[in-house]
Amino acid sequence: MIEFKNVSKTYEDTGVRALSDVSFSIEKGEFVFLVGRSGAGKSTLSKLIIKEESPDEGEIFVNKFDLNALAKKEIPYLRRSVGMMFQDFRLLPNKTVYENVAFAMQVIGASRSEIRRNVPNVLNLVGLGHKARMLPSQLSGGEQQRVSLARALVNKPPVIIADEPTANLDPDTSVQIMELLAEVNQRGTTMIVTTHAKDFVDTMHKRVLEFRDGVLIRDEKEGAYGNDI
């Protein structure tokens, strides 16, 4: 489903080698934590998956796409197959919750009836059906993160990448979000979660990929956060 083969990435402008000879593969339906210190290369890995950045060396396969062979025109279709959640939510402040989610369907050319059918469904799934008409500024941080999850989900991508989904949330809200991600994963969506939240990684017993200075130093099934991060 997602495969990295000897992937290296150096940012040209700073000369920082963000990833070094990284190889791993993630199967359909897996739940994977990406851990490591700040600057270890976790976000870079997400950017490579959606081809926001390209590797200097190595091969990357995402769903049915071979990213080295991917034409520029095809990038949107790759991105439709990967839902992204961001630490800072990235919601549109002047659109309601409903519109923020509908927007994701609109821009890929979904019909109006599809939008009317799917959006309420995902909003109910993340528990925000009753707040559909509110603006993001009228929501709590956890609720905003759930909107961003709903937006990532609404086009039914086989993979969701969540980059530090609990970074801005209090502990209780974080639990809710993580549970929600686990639930979505239960329904069959591959879930890749970058996090610094030791507690979750330790208690959820999922696969852990640990990076240090761009090198993949640990790939453990039912792993823990690790003590040296």
Binding site: K73, Y77, R79, R90, L92
Partner: peptide, 17 residues
């Protein structure tokens, strides 16, 4: 630009933008 950025992430084609 924020809107455009999000459009790119959810897979809008260039022409759509």
């Amino acid at each position: 630009r924020k809107e455009i950025n999000i459009m790119k992430f959810v897979g809008a084609t260039n022409w759509f933008i």
